[in-house]
């Protein structure tokens, strides 16, 4: 039996807990949160008062805390020889990332970062089409991820120091997806609102140039009021590929009284598939759809975008891989 301990009882912690419970041979031993009240809201699991006690009882830790706290939990996990799943991003700064990578490689630690897009049907299929050159060679790509603003615990998302704003929260998903499709990034230029001091929301626009020549435009928003929406458009030399989450509603339901919803259900719950891939990695050593180098490279580009918002200058990606 694989014993999982979840750190952080926010939205992602609860979601992961539900999924881990559905994987055969996995047991969620308990949860820890710096806010004991939040911890107690999780039903059906043991509530740990200290993170040290949680570590003692588990083989795997799942870190679902604010971004700026990831590093200390990851390092503790490596030290105690636990397998580590950490919600994206890997951590908040490159210094932290370098420290993590160095230690993880030295100790051969199993760490996976939750860049979940690779596990979504639509994104995996877009990638398949790109690989098959369905519309030829991609030239100009537009990708978008918009939502309203969430306050989170203690409004941590609104702190650039803690969350990195919408670039490190939402845009990083699309950066990972595009790097999965096109490889390394040459340079990045980005603009956002948070770096200009706008409070309790963020909106970011970025332009990436990939080493393979692809030009990408990225939009990430916490300033949209009608809910979560994503889109991808790839203009290629022999055609065009496009996807918009607004359009493929295979199910629409309207109730008397005006309530209604639209959905596009699939058999595979992406979070469950992602966590299964991780559990499989911890058991068999089979590298999951993304490894820690991918997560490191993605963070590097995301932080370069954030740097660009502050300086107004283009940032050339130097390292590429750790």
């Amino acid at each position: 039996m694989d014993r999982v301990g979840v750190i952080g009882c926010g939205k992602m912690g609860l979601k992961h807990m539900d999924c881990f419970r559905r994987i055969p041979g996995v047991k969620v031993v308990g949860v820890y949160d710096t806010n004991a009240v939040k911890c107690k809201e999780c039903s059906g699991v043991k509530h740990y008062e200290t993170v040290a006690e949680l570590f003692k009882d588990c083989d795997i830790v799942d870190i679902c805390t604010p971004t700026n706290t990831h590093k200390e939990y990851i390092m503790e996990g490596i030290k105690q020889k636990k397998a580590v799943f950490v919600e994206k991003p890997l951590c908040r700064t490159m210094d932290e990332a370098n420290e993590i990578l160095k230690e993880a490689k030295k100790k051969k630690a199993k760490i996976m970062v939750g860049h979940i897009l690779r596990y979504f049907n639509q994104y995996a299929n877009i990638k398949r089409l790109v690989d098959a050159k369905a519309a030829g060679k991609p030239c100009v790509v537009r990708i978008s991820r918009v939502n309203g603003f969430r306050r989170g615990s203690n409004n941590w998302f609104s702190s650039l120091e803690k969350s990195g704003g919408v670039i490190l929260d939402l845009m990083i998903h699309d950066i990972d997806f595009l790097m999965w499709c096109f490889g390394d990034v040459e340079r990045v230029y980005a603009m956002n609102l948070m770096s200009k001091g706008v409070q309790d929301t963020d909106y970011a626009l970025a332009v990436l140039r990939f080493k393979n020549g692809v030009i990408a435009h990225l939009e990430a928003s916490w300033a949209h009021y009608s809910g979560f929406r994503t889109s991808v458009e790839m203009a290629c030399d022999k055609g065009l590929i496009s996807y918009d989450s607004r359009n493929p509603n295979t199910l629409a339901v309207e109730f008397a009284g005006g309530r209604n919803f639209k959905d596009s259900p699939v058999d595979e719950n992406a979070t469950l598939v992602e966590l299964k891939d991780f559990i499989n990695y911890t058991r068999s050593g089979k590298i999951p759809k993304l490894d820690i180098d991918d997560a490191y490279g993605c963070l590097e580009v995301s932080l370069a975008a954030l740097e660009s918002t502050k300086t107004g200058k283009v940032v050339t990606i130097k390292k590429g891989k750790f």
Partner: peptide, 12 residues
């Protein structure tokens, strides 16, 4: 105000 624009002749 920040802004972007895609002027591409990219419609197949």
């Amino acid at each position: 105000v920040i802004a972007t624009l895609d002027p591409s002749w990219s419609r197949p």
